[in-house]
Amino acid sequence: MIFGLVLLVLIVVAVAWVMGMYNGLVGSRNEVKNSWSQIDVQLKRRHDLIPNLVETVKGYMGHERGTLEAVTKARQQAVEVTGSVEDRAKAENALSQTLRSLFAVAEAYPDLKANQNFLALQEELTSTENKISFARQYYNDAVLRLNNRIQMFPSSVIAGMFNFQQEKFFEVEAAEDRQVPQVKF
């Protein structure tokens, strides 16, 4: 009788424990999904802002056709890319690069810098850029939490049983871009 009762309690505790682990894993996975959709929203917003920017800048920066075309092309590629997190990250990072050089070039055009429309767009794009990196920061933290749960004992056992997959980090840049830029005089 006593033995049976102890056994019953043990089973209930074990089931509750497995349930807690499982729910924790599902929670982590949903957090990853949710934070990815956050990045998605901001990337979309950036895609929408760029045509406006190019339109505004065109009149002032006639000589910088190459820079503008690079931005337009990078945007097009970023919009079209589908598939893995890695591919998208690559295309979006390329777009960030071209935008950065566009704003750097814009410094040489005082008229453009006095244009209210341009200033407003610059603030919007800077902010969107920030939002992307903060969303990425949050996404990477969420992925880290999920991956830790999947790899660490004892939750790794439950994760293996229910086939939880590790997620990939949103990498910042390709390895060669992360090196310190060379300054030549």
């Binding site: 950065r100 704003f103 750097a104 410094e107 610059q122 800077t126 850029e129 920030n130 992307i132 990196s133 903060f134 990425r136 920061q137 990477n140 933290d141 880290l144 980090f169 949103f170 990498e171 910042v172 992360r178």
Partner: peptide, 24 residues
């Protein structure tokens, strides 16, 4: 284990505007 380095990601973007201003 985590090559993504969010620190490096957030800081340049957050200070992008300042960096540009400083460069000018």
């Amino acid at each position: 284990a985590m090559p993504a380095v969010p620190v490096a990601a957030a800081v340049p973007a957050a200070t992008l505007a300042q960096a540009q201003a400083a460069a000018a």
